[in-house]
Design a protein around this nucleic acid. Structure first.
Lengths: 333, 333
DNA sequence: GTTCCTTCTGTAAACGTTTACAATACCTTT
DNA sequence: AAAGGTATTGTAAACGTTTACAGAAGGAAC
């Protein structure tokens, strides 16, 4: 059987001696029909192996029951929690979820993904962990398809977002370590641009609020990867000033942990480590990593609810939790 | 602007005083047209913010340029390598990749995902790490859309697959440890059903080939999770017979590693650990986990190539590599 | 017997695109 | 001047579905 001769409602109409209208109505439970006809139609549909041609249906309906989730393809491990939430709510609303990948700062691949889904008249677009430039934002605004950003904020007022407050998280991580007696605190692996960069602003503000000096070397940029952690430690190791590093992601913290251990030093005895995210992996390494844990599941839920239950939120910051584990210690003077 | 009045080629035709046919041809670079007309059309298309209605196009073309990847939603971390490969080849062939999730042994969610994509006339379906029951197989066979299974084998001869030879991997893992002097070798976390279960057959055969006894307790089933590793160690710890455990996945090995450490024992001094998969994470924990590493990227590549470059493969077993790291030691008698 | 419901089914247009075929205009060749 | 070719554009049908509207058949009320 080729695609060309898939069974259509026309075939079923012919087989049952009915009109296509009747068949269509019965197959979608619209209008009223005698029970014998209903039975006859559904049975022949099954027997003939009918599958709906969604392209045709979408064409006349001008919409589809698909939610598109476009996810950054950079190796971050938190998006699965967001997706989990989206899929579970979508399933109960009988929606389908299509996941696409795009480069975090790659305009071309973002545009391609967005074009692909708006061409198909999806009912909504959820953008996860993507920093969008102006070009992408105008494309998004030029369509009437609702979209929302998760885990990034966006200046454009037309696009709502749900994320954690990166500034506050940066501040909280710093405050936590200051409370534990640290004064020489570094921050590692944060990207130079995008809303996530606000973590550095929070860090700087907190340090300044406590009249603590910040050496330029202490701020090391990156892309939240494992490698960033390993490499940044090589920089920190040169002077051996710092007693604590705040890491851009769980993976960055683990990379640094391993680099530190490699050098014969110990976490948290010699260096304390805090990470952002707080995914499962922080409990898999030893010592377990103290983290600023984000509410990823709630983030996904907020995103899909925005698309299904009406469009109220415009900007929303979700709470984060400070979870102390084994990678941080109190510094005795 | 609502979806209802999106710009169509009809609108462009009106604006440019041309026929829809000409507009359509120019927008898809078919046929020849005067350069001025081409310019006029493309410019107005841009100006008016035209986006193609793929539903309409798919409807007449009877196909789409979409590859559907249906992935098991169980927490396994190797699928990203498979998807990476699929996406990179798809990008160079100008195809779009839609990823859907389905339960590993959940017939309903599998059927739903498959129905969703065949209704949209995708050009191919790649099933990753999914054990398919008969119902799903018949649905797959009833359509003319080509499909292929990755990381699982399937009895049905109509559906091709690419995977690692689980029997041989089970045998190889066991042989490795026997070569290192171990005789009391356990195997943990393997599912009771599905092709992956063949790892146990390989293990048993290897033990038997070396005239080694296997206690029933040594074989502990599971679902390749981190928790399986933790829990299974509680079982093994009761008798403290074994000197080595072969773990169903990297995560299972790490779970066991942590449980072992928790008890004050050491890997590999007290217990050696081997895992299947060999994803990035085996190098992130200490000690690094010795693994039977599968060729996931090549698996993804083989899957997408099957769909694009012609359909030659029917069944293919990809090579695996034994990578010794720090979680295994030679046992001196 | 007329009118009015109700219940069921059919007719036909519409969705936006693609493409085979026809048509036109203009240019070359004879 | 006729014939043939080429370059460009238009006409119209087709894809499979949905749905407003019309129609038919039967029953109930007067």
């Amino acid at each position: 059987m080729t695609l060309q001769n898939r069974v259509t409602i026309k075939d079923i109409a012919k087989a049952t001696q009915l009109s296509v209208a009747t068949v269509s109505r019965i197959l979608h439970k619209k209008g009223q029909h005698s029970s014998v006809t209903v039975k006859r139609v559904t049975e022949t549909a099954n027997k003939m192996g009918y599958v709906r041609n969604t392209s045709a249906a979408d064409l006349v309906n001008q919409k589809s029951r698909i939610v598109a989730v476009i996810v950054s393809n950079t190796k971050s491990n938190f998006s699965e929690h967001i997706i989990d939430a989206i899929e579970s709510k979508a399933a109960s609303d009988d929606l389908n979820v299509f996941i696409l990948h795009a480069g975090n700062r790659d305009e071309q691949s973002q545009l391609k993904a967005i074009k692909t889904v708006i061409e198909r008249a999806v009912m909504g677009i959820i953008l996860v962990s993507l920093e969008l430039d102006d070009n992408v934002l105008t494309t998004l605004n030029s369509t009437s398809i609702p979209s929302i950003c998760l885990s990034t904020s966006v200046k454009d007022t037309a696009i709502p977002f749900v994320t954690s407050d990166n500034y506050q998280m940066g501040y909280a991580a710093t405050q936590l370590m200051i409370d534990k007696g640290h004064t020489k605190i570094a921050i590692a692996g944060i990207p130079t641009a995008g809303s996530i960069n606000q973590r550095i602003a929070g860090y700087l503000q907190c340090m300044s609020d406590h009249h603590l000096r910040v050496e330029p070397d202490w701020i090391q940029y990156g892309t939240c990867t494992y490698d960033d952690g390993e490499k940044t430690w090589q920089v920190y190791a040169k002077k051996r000033e710092i007693t604590c590093a705040i890491c851009a992601s769980d993976l960055t913290a683990i990379g640094m942990l391993n680099a530190i251990t490699e050098m014969g030093l110990k976490v948290p005895d010699d260096i304390s480590l805090v990470s952002f995210d707080g995914t499962d992996i922080v409990d898999m390494v030893r010592p377990r990593i103290t983290s600023i844990s984000q509410s990823f599941y709630e983030m996904g839920l907020a995103g899909i609810k925005f698309l299904t239950d009406g469009r109220t939120i415009q900007k929303q910051y979700l709470p984060f939790k400070i979870v102390e584990r084994e990678s941080t210690r109190r510094l005795e003077k």
